[in-house]
Design a protein around this nucleic acid. Structure first.
Lengths: 99, 99
DNA sequence: TTACTAGTTCGAAAATCATAGAACAACCAA
DNA sequence: TTGGTTGTTCTATGATTTTCGAACTAGTAA
């Protein structure tokens, strides 16, 4: 489908990760991925136009928070665990537990 | 000088705190407060116009991350520790340790 | 080939945000 | 009272962000 680019975790500054998580829809995406491990875009519980969803996935990907792999016509998204453990310790727990 | 309003911590959603920390200047303010406990606006190591700085302090205050108290002509700002311990566990450490 | 599905990219509109000058209020000190 | 300091509020401008329709690419399947 397309060659997805994922940044080096170390090159992502904190404010970029914070910005990626400053949107209600993107937090909802992260929580869905926490619950289901791996989801295609159209399986996400988000009521937005395709183009908008694609934009949000790009923001999360650029911030090093998710990884996308192609499988047939769909692309499967998952949380980039090492980003949180290594670069942003505690952040994933915050997303998981915070109201 | 003015009656500063501080929100109930519980009413601050995660995306609001994330947005407050999605700006390089505001992260710098938080780090200065981590180091010095309490600082007036004009003591912060930020090269911005007064009006801009006042805006950033308002964003941090509205997100429940800092508390401001008046003392004479100046207003002293400090990190609202209970916000982090109680509402956003791990976030303060992230600000402290993250590059 | 044709049709369908999944997702991206382009272009544009609306909303939000960062920035700062100018005027202002409040306090302090001479 | 006059002047200096501290910070807010108003207003405006430029930049960024969110949103989505439309056109597009790539894979799958009939």
């Amino acid at each position: 489908m397309k060659a997805y680019v994922h940044p080096e975790i170390e090159s992502v500054p904190l404010e970029k990760a914070m910005h990626a998580l400053s949107d209600r829809s993107r937090i909802a995406i992260m929580r869905a991925l926490l619950e289901h491990q791996e989801l295609a875009c159209n399986e996400l519980p988000i009521e937005l136009a395709k183009a908008t969803l694609s934009h949000h996935m790009g923001v999360l990907r650029d911030a090093g928070l998710i990884v996308t792999r192609v499988e047939g016509t769909k692309c499967l998204n998952a949380i980039r665990e090492e980003a949180f453990v290594h670069q942003f310790p505690g952040l994933l727990e915050l997303i998981r537990t915070c109201k």
